[in-house]
Amino acid sequence: MLGILVGLTVLGALVGEPDGDSGDRSSEISDENTQSLSASEPEPTTADEAAEVEISADQQPTARLSGPQFNAQRSARQYLNMSGFSRAGLIEQLSSAYGDGYSVPDATAAVDSLNVNWNRQAERSARQYLDMMGFSCSGLIEQLSSSAGDRYTLSEARHGAQAAGAC
């Protein structure tokens, strides 16, 4: 039995690499696959896609975020991938009993830990409103900045309405 095992081992060594190269190609294959995957990633083409890319990059938990804050950050990124949100509106969504139910301090820490361009979010929201119905410039700014609406700052709301073409 031992003779058979030794024979198989020797045979395996002889047959292993026909060109005499016994080096491991798994790292070469892995590098080729990585290169082809990274080359096939599309560039964002619209404002919505660019905004999604901006906030969807994986962010690792840091020492300054607690577990609930990190989870709230994950939820915030998901909301921002779906729709435009103001800072105040996103904190409200995360902390509302009808939303995610995080504490206001945890929701605030989570939102503030993200690198979000709030003017770009206001543009997204303004375009979403204009896709649904017509708005005057002042009406859209009011909707975007109202405490009963999206809760953007007045400056962000003006920027969004102008960028969306309502003004």
Results as ranks from 00 to 15, higher is better:
residue 80 L to Y: 02
residue 81 N to M: 13
residue 81 N to F: 08
residue 81 N to K: 11
residue 82 M to D: 13
residue 82 M to E: 15
residue 82 M to Y: 15
residue 82 M to H: 14
residue 82 M to T: 12
residue 83 S to W: 12
residue 83 S to D: 14
residue 83 S to G: 08
residue 83 S to L: 12
residue 83 S to E: 14
residue 83 S to H: 12
residue 84 G to M: 08
residue 84 G to V: 05
residue 84 G to E: 09
residue 84 G to W: 11
residue 84 G to Q: 08
residue 84 G to K: 06
residue 85 F to Y: 15
residue 85 F to E: 09
residue 86 S to A: 11
residue 86 S to Y: 04
residue 86 S to D: 02
residue 86 S to M: 09
residue 86 S to V: 01
residue 87 R to K: 09
residue 87 R to C: 00
residue 87 R to Q: 09
residue 89 G to E: 12
residue 89 G to L: 09
residue 89 G to Y: 11
residue 89 G to C: 11
residue 90 L to Q: 11
residue 90 L to T: 07
residue 90 L to Y: 05
residue 91 I to A: 04
residue 91 I to S: 06
residue 91 I to K: 11
residue 91 I to Y: 04
residue 91 I to M: 07
residue 91 I to C: 06
residue 92 E to M: 10
residue 92 E to A: 15
residue 92 E to R: 14
residue 92 E to Y: 11
residue 93 Q to S: 14
residue 93 Q to N: 10
residue 94 L to W: 02
residue 94 L to C: 10
residue 94 L to P: 10
residue 94 L to F: 04
residue 95 S to Y: 10
residue 95 S to R: 09
residue 95 S to V: 06
residue 95 S to K: 12
residue 95 S to G: 09
residue 96 S to G: 15
residue 96 S to C: 11
residue 96 S to K: 11
residue 96 S to I: 12
residue 96 S to F: 09
residue 96 S to Q: 07
residue 97 A to H: 12
residue 97 A to S: 14
residue 97 A to L: 12
residue 98 Y to K: 15
residue 98 Y to W: 13
residue 98 Y to F: 13
residue 98 Y to A: 15
residue 99 G to A: 05
residue 99 G to P: 09
residue 99 G to K: 06
residue 99 G to D: 08
residue 99 G to H: 07
residue 100 D to R: 13
residue 100 D to G: 15
residue 100 D to P: 12
residue 100 D to K: 13
residue 100 D to F: 13
residue 100 D to M: 11
residue 100 D to E: 15
residue 100 D to V: 11
residue 101 G to V: 06
residue 101 G to M: 07
residue 101 G to C: 08
residue 101 G to H: 06
residue 101 G to S: 10
residue 101 G to I: 03
residue 101 G to F: 04
residue 101 G to W: 11
residue 102 Y to F: 15
residue 102 Y to N: 09
residue 102 Y to Q: 03
residue 102 Y to M: 06
residue 103 S to M: 01
residue 103 S to F: 03
residue 103 S to E: 02
residue 103 S to I: 03
residue 104 V to N: 04
residue 104 V to I: 13
residue 105 P to W: 06
residue 105 P to H: 07
residue 105 P to A: 00
residue 105 P to S: 12
residue 105 P to V: 04
residue 106 D to V: 02
residue 106 D to F: 01
residue 106 D to S: 14
residue 106 D to R: 02
residue 106 D to L: 04
residue 106 D to E: 10
residue 107 A to Y: 08
residue 107 A to E: 02
residue 107 A to Q: 05
residue 108 T to I: 00
residue 108 T to M: 03
residue 108 T to G: 04
residue 108 T to L: 02
residue 109 A to T: 09
residue 109 A to Q: 08
residue 109 A to E: 03
residue 109 A to V: 01
residue 110 A to N: 03
residue 110 A to Y: 00
residue 110 A to E: 01
residue 110 A to D: 00
residue 111 V to D: 04
residue 111 V to C: 08
residue 111 V to E: 02
residue 111 V to A: 02
residue 111 V to G: 08
residue 112 D to T: 03
residue 112 D to Q: 03
residue 112 D to P: 02
residue 112 D to M: 05
residue 112 D to V: 00
residue 112 D to G: 04
residue 112 D to C: 00
residue 112 D to W: 00
residue 113 S to A: 15
residue 113 S to T: 01
residue 113 S to P: 05
residue 113 S to V: 00
